[in-house]
Simulated assay, not measured.
Amino acid sequence: MQATWLVAEREVRMKLRSRSFLISTAITMLAILLGIVIGGIVGANPTQPKIAAVGSAIAVVTETGAFDVVEAATVAEAEDLVRSETVEAAVVPGSGGSGSDAAVSGIKVIGLDSAPNNVIAALSQAPEVTLLEPSDQDAGILYLVAIGFGLVFFMSALTFGLTIAQSVVEEKQTRIVEILMSTVPVRVLLAGKIVGNSILAFGQILLIALVAGVGLLVTGQDILLADIGPSLVWFVVFFAFGFVLLSSLFAAAAALVSRQEDMGTVTSPIMMLVMIPYFLVILFFDNPLVLGIMSYVPFSAPVGMTMRVFLGTAEWWEPLLSLGILAAATVGFVAIGSRIYANGLLRMGTRMKLAEALKG
């Protein structure tokens, strides 16, 4: 344990000394905070179409509450406002019309070069709508939450997974690994790399959660914060196992090569395993079938099951079952990864074949 912690401490210290890592982390935090603040401001102050209204049409458009109304004395004045593009359209008394005029019951909507469909839709009488299974969450909120979970998983796993791979190849290329292996066992070296980068990854996730929480509280979106809290806890738990699984694969893949130029060929399949859940959760964030399948696949469970917990579609036992499958898969992949890592670490020159690394 002491040797593992020494290796982990070395990994953390080297990463924290990297100016590019610190700058990219700061930019990420700032982008998240600005996104939440801007979203809160836009949500609290939605923009309304600006239109001109004349006579009896003023009461009609005001009653809808959907417009920023500019009162005009005459129809000609309202038309001048439309031509100067001061307003999007004009609503005047009367019916019928031709050309750029769009008829609405009892009033007339005047547009510039095309019918202002957003104004017409707001003035039209909407039919009564009945939902058989109403959703508790807004579709826009669901999409943003899906992007959030998918992006955090994608960025953290990819950033720190590639860090482990680069570290392994660099140590092989510079022959430092021979000195390290004379001091600590190979599996301790691998465990230290995984532990060190796991600490960095969790630290970044907690920092993201803290910044997002502060942003939601400051902008008055505490209701969303309360809704997302339980799913965020599950995300951290699932990410812990998923990151260890992926880290062992990145380290094992990097041990097959001896040059940084060759690293892309062996890490590309693992990068695909990280990217696929990200795209799936964005495209199918409200699809119960796709999310259900993702929940039980080890590489996508941190995102798929977390989204189902947020949606409230997962039974109480499903996260536990999914976590058990992920934990078992993590143990298996770590065992395989450590064997490949140990057998390929001292192999120099050409790329080592996977079958040869497994055989030893």
Rank of each mutant, 00 (worst) to 15 (best):
A102N: 04
A59N: 08
S156I: 15
Q166V: 12
G229Y: 10
S56P: 04
V237N: 07
L207R: 08
G220H: 08
L358M: 03
D101N: 11
E11R: 15
W317E: 05
A139H: 14
G344V: 01
F284Q: 04
T183H: 06
F153V: 05
Q173S: 15
S182K: 08
R259S: 07
E71G: 02
L273K: 06
T4K: 11
I164Q: 04
L210E: 06
T25Y: 11
G264F: 03
M29F: 12
G40L: 02
P46H: 02
L321R: 05
A31C: 13
A103P: 11
A66Q: 10
V7W: 00
A3I: 04
L358W: 08
T174S: 12
E315V: 02
L200P: 10
P277Y: 02
T47I: 14
E356K: 15
A72P: 01
T28H: 07
E79Y: 04
R175E: 11
A121W: 11
M294T: 04
V109F: 07
T74G: 14
E79H: 09
A201D: 00
N45L: 05
A146Q: 10
I27Y: 02
E9V: 02
S124A: 13
A252M: 01
V177Q: 15
V297Y: 02
A126N: 05
F333R: 08
E171R: 06
S231G: 01
E88N: 01
V297H: 05
D136K: 13
A53M: 00
S338N: 00
F154L: 15
L33M: 13
N343L: 06
E128I: 14
V109Y: 05
D138N: 14
L224K: 09
I32R: 13
A89D: 14
V303H: 06
V119I: 05
D262N: 09
E318L: 07
A72N: 01
I293V: 03
L123Q: 10
A73L: 10
P127W: 12
M307W: 02
F299C: 00
V169S: 09
E88A: 15
I336V: 11
A139L: 14
V87R: 14
G220V: 10
A342T: 01
Q221F: 07
V266N: 08
V233Y: 01
V12F: 09
G215W: 06
I110C: 06
K15P: 02
A8Y: 14
V211Y: 09
M155C: 08
R351V: 00
I32A: 14
V12G: 00
V7Q: 03
Y278Q: 13
L245G: 04
V129T: 08
F241W: 10
